[in-house]
């Protein structure tokens, strides 16, 4: 029973960063702009979160520091997302290319800055004011689910609210309808009097900032510092979760949860005595193998938004 509780709690903790990043990616792609740069935006988020929290902490702001870190990650990542947005929307660059630029640029620039700011150090100083688990009275006493949902990090609460909010936006609001329309048929949307490129700009920038929260989450709940290994490919996993979930808020979240579950399973399995004889690598492999198997058996063909990857050319059908 305790193992199941730990497993579910671990699942949500591991998944939080991925859900942020995957939802972020989804916003951009539903508006028709490929966002392969999620990895880079997560790196940016992790960097700014570490920097902001560190300096806020040094200034004596105490437990508000991680919140400032989160805010810093959200706002400052706009610098990078603007590059992707301008190249792919205004100058109609190939969106995979400009996303790749982000993936090369952000790690390079942030590690460069870390070395400049901290005298050649390979990582930022450890921050002590990170997020701690908060349990909500009464609700956290619910067996299994209570521990999973109501005894966890603030970032996880934020992400749960974000999922609900995104579902509402995408399915029930005019803004969501317009965003989806831009991604499916920009020409028709333009005819209806909606500024296609403006919606795409906003989507790309929001997308990156939300993905940055994912990177920030890793720093503020798991690693307590920013280094080369902080993000290490999680952006691509988030991308996989997004495609897995077929660009739908709930599907995307389930994709990220599946991956988080496999991660948590890895940790819990290693505790069980009989598993000691199994090579460790098999557990490390588990999340990826499981994702692949589920894809082959259950998910299959994925259909991207119709206008994904195409710059909008007015007058072209």
């Amino acid at each position: 029973m305790e193992i199941i509780g730990n497993l579910l709690n671990g699942t949500l903790v591991f998944s939080t960063a991925l859900i942020f990043a995957a939802l972020g990616g989804m916003i951009s792609e539903r508006s028709g702009v490929i966002n392969i740069g999620i990895e880079g935006f997560m790196v940016s988020g992790a960097f700014f979160a570490a920097i902001f929290t560190y300096y806020a902490e040094s200034a004596g702001l105490g437990s508000i520091s991680p919140w400032l870190g989160l805010l810093g990650a959200f706002v400052c990542t706009i610098i990078f997302s603007f590059i992707h947005a301008v190249a792919s929307i205004k100058y109609k660059a190939n969106q995979v290319v400009s996303g790749t630029v982000i993936n090369i640029l952000t790690p390079a620039l942030t590690f460069f800055l870390v070395k400049v700011l901290f005298d050649g150090a390979a990582e930022t100083p450890i921050i002590s004011n990170v997020f701690r688990k908060i349990s909500i009275p009464y609700l956290s006493d619910i067996p299994i689910l209570g521990d999973m949902l109501f005894n966890t990090y603030p970032t996880t609460y934020v992400v749960i609210l974000l999922v609900l909010f995104m579902y509402y936006i995408f399915k029930r609001s005019t803004v969501g309808l317009r965003l989806r329309a831009v991604g499916e048929h920009p020409g028709a949307t333009d005819t209806a009097g909606i500024n296609v490129n403006r919606i795409r700009y906003i989507s790309v920038i929001l997308s990156a900032s939300i993905a940055a929260l994912g990177g920030a989450t890793i720093v503020l709940t798991t690693t307590s510092s920013f280094s080369f290994t902080t993000v290490a490919g999680q952006g691509f996993i988030a991308l996989a979760a997004m495609i897995f979930g077929k660009w739908h808020p709930i599907g995307v979240t389930l994709g990220a949860l599946l991956f988080g579950f496999a991660q948590a399973l890895k940790d819990q399995m290693q505790i069980i005595p009989f598993a000691q004889s199994i090579p460790n690598e098999l557990f490390y492999m588990l999340p990826y193998l499981l994702t692949l198997i589920v894809l082959v058996i259950a998910v299959g063909r994925s259909s991207a938004p119709a206008a994904l990857g195409q710059p909008y050319e007015p007058g072209q059908r």
Partner: peptide, 11 residues
């Protein structure tokens, strides 16, 4: 099977 190559190659 039509499974997106981006996911499969990452995995």
């Amino acid at each position: 099977k039509g499974i997106n190559e981006v996911i499969t190659t990452i995995m």
